[in-house]
């Protein structure tokens, strides 16, 4: 089934098509939600809210972006809003603005360990790091999605990398 056919069937509230669309994107979206929130329960909630919004607003989807990109944008906003509701969220503007490069050495980094370290980052810095380094967004896109300035996005990313390097060394 093509993406357009899937969308049309979802618009008709076809439950099997909705399930198909959910299955197609659930892993990528859930993983992103988990990386942004650092909590599986919160990721579940974000994913549920995201797909609910997707199915309720699917008629507004235009083919300017891929369906996956459209869903991802919704999820990022949901996850960001979810993170902001927690007291542990670190205000982005309070971070240092040092932009010097980070030396990652030559040793391979264990991915599972890297994930744990990423999850230990402050939430704002973690969100920017995941969106730019993992998901491939630009600073401008991140600024738009998270409602911050591009400068803030850059400083957050730099902070996240330095903090990651420190944590990985330890």
């Amino acid at each position: 089934m093509t993406e357009n056919e899937l969308i049309q069937r979802c618009l008709q509230h076809d439950r099997s098509a909705q399930r198909l669309l959910y299955d197609r994107y659930k892993t990528a979206m859930y993983t992103l939600a988990y990386r942004m929130t650092g909590d599986f329960d919160q990721a579940n909630s974000v994913l549920q809210d995201t797909f609910l919004a997707v199915f309720q607003n699917l008629s507004q989807y235009r083919s300017e972006a891929t369906l996956g990109a459209w869903i991802k944008a919704i999820l990022v906003r949901k996850a960001h809003r979810s993170s902001q509701q927690t007291p542990a969220y670190l205000l982005m503007e309070t971070l240092p603005t040092d932009t010097s490069s980070v030396d990652w050495g030559n040793d391979a980094i264990d991915a599972a360990h890297l994930e744990k370290v990423i999850l230990s980052l402050p939430e704002g810095a973690r969100a920017v790091f995941v969106l730019i380094e993992v998901e491939g967004y630009t600073h401008r896109e991140v600024a738009e999605l998270l409602g911050v300035s591009e400068g803030t996005s850059k400083s957050q990313l730099n902070y996240a990398k330095k903090r990651l390097r420190e944590l990985l060394k330890n």
Partner: peptide
């Protein structure tokens, strides 16, 4: 950042 980029390619995925 090559080691970081390489490791990021292999981050685990999670099922809801």
């Amino acid at each position: 950042e090559a080691p970081l980029k390489e490791a990021l390619q292999h981050l685990p995925m999670h099922e809801p």
